[in-house]
Computed example of a mutant assay.
Amino acid sequence: MAYPRLMYKSSLSYAYKGFDTSIDASYMSQRNLSYTGDAKVPSYWLANFSMRYKFGNMGKYAHSLGFMQNLELSFNVYNLTNQFYVSTMGENGFPLSGDAQSFLLGAPRQFFGSVRAEF
């Protein structure tokens, strides 16, 4: 009940000097919403993307920036394909048969960026 028969996760990453990037994908097969199995939640694929660049000591780029160490910029996209999916189910319990509308939808595509530095 509420458990998929198959889950799959994969990751592909690349790094060169201060730059690194990755893409992750996960698959969850359909899940039963009712005890009898007459109501099911469909399967889905999710993909995430991230990239980051580490500048290191900023003094090598401009002497006036020498006070800043280990500057790092990163950018992430979650749910890259903007997949519509059910993330959680059974919050109000599971029905014997049919659909009790007891589930939560997954988050839509989201973008995150960050800047990190040491002083």
Score class of each variant (00 low, 15 high):
1 M>P: 00
4 P>L: 02
4 P>Y: 01
5 R>V: 09
7 M>S: 08
8 Y>V: 15
9 K>R: 15
9 K>H: 15
10 S>D: 14
10 S>Q: 13
10 S>A: 14
11 S>A: 14
11 S>E: 13
11 S>L: 06
12 L>Y: 02
13 S>F: 15
14 Y>E: 08
16 Y>C: 09
16 Y>I: 09
21 T>G: 10
22 S>N: 15
23 I>K: 01
24 D>W: 11
24 D>V: 12
25 A>T: 10
25 A>K: 03
32 N>K: 12
34 S>N: 05
39 A>K: 00
39 A>M: 08
39 A>H: 10
41 V>N: 09
41 V>S: 13
41 V>Q: 12
44 Y>T: 01
44 Y>G: 00
46 L>G: 03
48 N>T: 10
50 S>Y: 15
51 M>I: 07
51 M>Y: 04
52 R>I: 14
53 Y>M: 05
53 Y>V: 05
53 Y>A: 07
53 Y>Q: 05
54 K>M: 03
55 F>Q: 03
56 G>L: 06
56 G>W: 06
56 G>Y: 06
58 M>T: 11
58 M>S: 02
59 G>Y: 00
59 G>L: 03
60 K>S: 14
61 Y>E: 10
62 A>M: 12
62 A>E: 07
62 A>R: 02
62 A>V: 09
64 S>A: 10
64 S>M: 13
65 L>M: 11
65 L>T: 09
69 Q>A: 14
71 L>C: 02
72 E>C: 10
73 L>F: 14
74 S>M: 03
74 S>L: 04
75 F>W: 10
76 N>L: 04
76 N>R: 09
76 N>K: 07
77 V>L: 03
77 V>Y: 02
80 L>N: 08
80 L>Y: 02
80 L>F: 07
84 F>A: 15
86 V>Y: 04
87 S>K: 11
89 M>I: 14
89 M>G: 05
90 G>E: 08
90 G>P: 04
91 E>C: 06
91 E>M: 09
91 E>G: 11
92 N>V: 11
93 G>Y: 03
94 F>Q: 14
97 S>I: 11
99 D>P: 04
100 A>L: 11
100 A>G: 06
100 A>C: 07
100 A>T: 03
100 A>K: 03
101 Q>R: 12
102 S>D: 05
103 F>V: 14
103 F>S: 10
104 L>R: 09
104 L>M: 07
106 G>V: 12
107 A>H: 14
107 A>D: 14
107 A>N: 13
111 F>E: 13
113 G>I: 07
113 G>S: 13
114 S>H: 09
115 V>E: 02
115 V>T: 11
116 R>I: 10
116 R>A: 08
116 R>W: 06
117 A>N: 00
117 A>T: 06
117 A>F: 13
117 A>G: 05
118 E>N: 08
118 E>Q: 05
119 F>M: 03
119 F>C: 00
